[in-house]
Structures are given as C-alpha cells and as structure tokens.
Amino acid sequence: MDRMGAMQTLVRVVDTGSFSAAARALNIGQPAVSKTVAQLEDRLGVRLLTRTTRGLSPTEAGLRFYERARRAIEEADEAELAARGAGAGLHGTLRVSAATTFARLHVVKLLPGFLAAHPRLEVELILDDRVIDLVEERIDVALRMGDLEDSSATARRLASSPRSMLATRRYFERVGMPASPSDLAGHDSVVYMQGRHGTWRFRHDGTETSVVVGGRLRVSSAEGIRSAVLADMGLTIASHWMFAPEMASGEVCTVLDAWTLDPIDLWAVFPTGRLVSAKARAFTDLVAAALRSDAG
C-alpha cells in the first residue's frame, strides 16, 4: 500500500464528507477511494470512518489519524517546496480564521491578487469573532486582535492600530461632543460585550481615568457595533481598522483625542506543535504589508 497516497485519500474523504466527493477531488473512481480506506482500516486494525445522516465522519481513532496524516502531508509538501525553491509556487488549501468585520474590511480585498499570484492555491476563510480551536478546526493561521489568551501559542505580531472614542458626525451634531471623559455620562454608548463590558480607560498627562458607561445597547459582535454606530445610535471605542472607510470619508469622527487609549495589536497565530507552512507565511506577510501601507 502507498502509505502517503492512503493518507491523502483518507484526509480528502474527511474534508469532503463522502467517498464520491473525495473521488472527484482526487480525480479517481469512487470504488478506488472506498478500497483504499478499507485497506487502510484493515492494516491499522481500527475503524476510521462512520456513516451519519450527514455523510461520513471520522471515528475517534479516525480523527487522531486524520490530524497526524494531514500534518505529515503538509510537512511533505513543505519539504518538496523547499527543495524546488520559491519558483515552485504555493499550492493546496490554506485555512484562515479571522474576525468577521476585520476580514471584510481588510482581508477579502487582498485575496484576488493573492490567488492570482498562486493559481494552485485555494483559500478557506473562516469568519468568527470568537476564539476557535486551531487544531480542531484545521486552521493554518488565525488573525487575532488584542491580548493573546494562550502565552504558549506560536504567534507573530503583524501590526498595531490606535483606538479612539468615535461616533458619526450626525450623532455629534444632534447631541454635541464630549469635552472630557466625565461628559460621557450624558451620551448614548454602544458597548462591545466581548470587550471590557463598559469600562473605558483613558490616559492624560500621565494619569489614568476610568469611566463605567451603562449604555442601553450592548452588542456581541464587531459587525453589530459598526451597524449601531453608523445608525447614529451612540459613540463607542474602537480601533481605527474597524471604521477605516468612514473615518477616511469624514462620516465618523473621533473625540477626546487628548486622552489616549491603549492601541490594539493584530497577531498571526499558528497551531502549536506544527511547522508554519510557506502558504501561511506568505499570507501573513501580505496582510502585514497591506496594513503598513494603509497606515502610511
């Protein structure tokens, strides 16, 4: 049995969820896929797949085999790429996790050029504001903002963005602009539920001021924060990345600029215990360069 070929077949079956879809992806007949998986199960002495109402899914043993097989395939691809040199180009599938709003504003627009430069590469963009398990979700690189929860994670800092108190020009025309943090009590606030839950900290002349705002609207996603602010519902604290188009047009204005807020960092986080693939490195280099260009 071709061990690498068998691993590639099993990985494709798990990824696609069926023998027929895996056969189409591998450009071989479905009986050949079924036979390869059966032979692999016989050699290992364990059941790797089970049939469910949604198709095929890995057993516990199958999932363990799948994770290690996928890693072995990726490392073999990396070895070939290193031997051939950069001219060989990137290929395979790159799975990227990112927050929805950040990806919509700053990542998706980079993909046409990236894919055109690497015609043998596919990208799967998983959008979720939550922190997901990179190994379980088979993520190659995650773009995460703020403090990293796992200090042992393999990570690279890509860029940093200022954070400001902001709202639409229409909101300020209706309510007026706050002159100091203490004025925020008289304003409507849009609070990000995944942040500091309404505690906003400002620094001015070496001292820190904390303001607890009890905004009537609390939102669990950055996309919801954007929508509420752009609907003139109140002010919020956000990174400049989050409202870049509206700040450039003047629709959104910052206030209390003399009071500084901690900036927010963007990190590329890679699965612990795995080599960082060439495709993940190339993608993160692209994002970092684009953000530097936007900042400049």
Rank of each mutant, 00 (worst) to 15 (best):
E124N: 03
G296T: 11
L184W: 10
A79T: 13
D2S: 00
D129P: 13
K35A: 00
H187E: 04
L90R: 03
V229F: 00
G296A: 14
S160K: 08
R84Y: 05
M145Y: 05
A238I: 01
A288G: 10
R170I: 10
R216D: 15
I132W: 11
S210W: 06
D150Q: 01
A222Y: 08
G296S: 15
D133I: 10
A228M: 08
H197S: 06
A22G: 04
Q39C: 04
G146E: 02
D188H: 08
E223S: 12
I225C: 09
L94T: 02
A282S: 15
D188T: 01
S34T: 09
L148R: 12
V212L: 12
L134C: 01
A238D: 08
T9S: 07
D133F: 11
E137K: 15
A79N: 02
S182W: 13
T168L: 13
S152P: 00
V33F: 08
E251T: 12
D285Y: 08
L266C: 03
Q194M: 12
M145W: 10
V252S: 01
L110H: 14
A248E: 15
V107P: 09
S57T: 15
F270T: 01
V255F: 00
A86D: 14
F270S: 03
I73K: 00
L166Y: 03
L105D: 07
F65I: 10
I237A: 07
R12W: 00
E136Y: 12
T53P: 08
D147W: 01
W267E: 01
H197M: 09
V276N: 03
G146K: 03
R104Y: 13
A83H: 06
R68I: 06
T52K: 07
R84E: 14
T154H: 10
R169P: 05
V123Q: 08
L230D: 02
L111K: 04
P263W: 10
A280H: 06
T53R: 12
D150C: 04
I126Q: 10
P263V: 03
S180W: 00
T168E: 02
I237V: 15
R281Y: 04
T53H: 09
G195L: 01
L48D: 04
A238Y: 09
E60Y: 01
D15S: 07
E78P: 04
Q39H: 14
L81T: 10
D183C: 02
A179T: 13
Q39N: 15
Q8N: 10
S182G: 13
D232K: 00
L148I: 11
A278N: 01
V191P: 03
V135R: 14
G85K: 12
P263Y: 07
R51V: 11
A290D: 15
E41S: 06
R156A: 12
L286I: 03
G296E: 15
G250Q: 02
A268D: 05
L266N: 00
D129I: 05
E246H: 05
R47D: 14
R281S: 12
V37N: 00
T260G: 08
A155F: 02
A116W: 13
D128Y: 09
V13H: 05
G92R: 00
S189C: 11
R281C: 15
S164Q: 04
D128M: 08
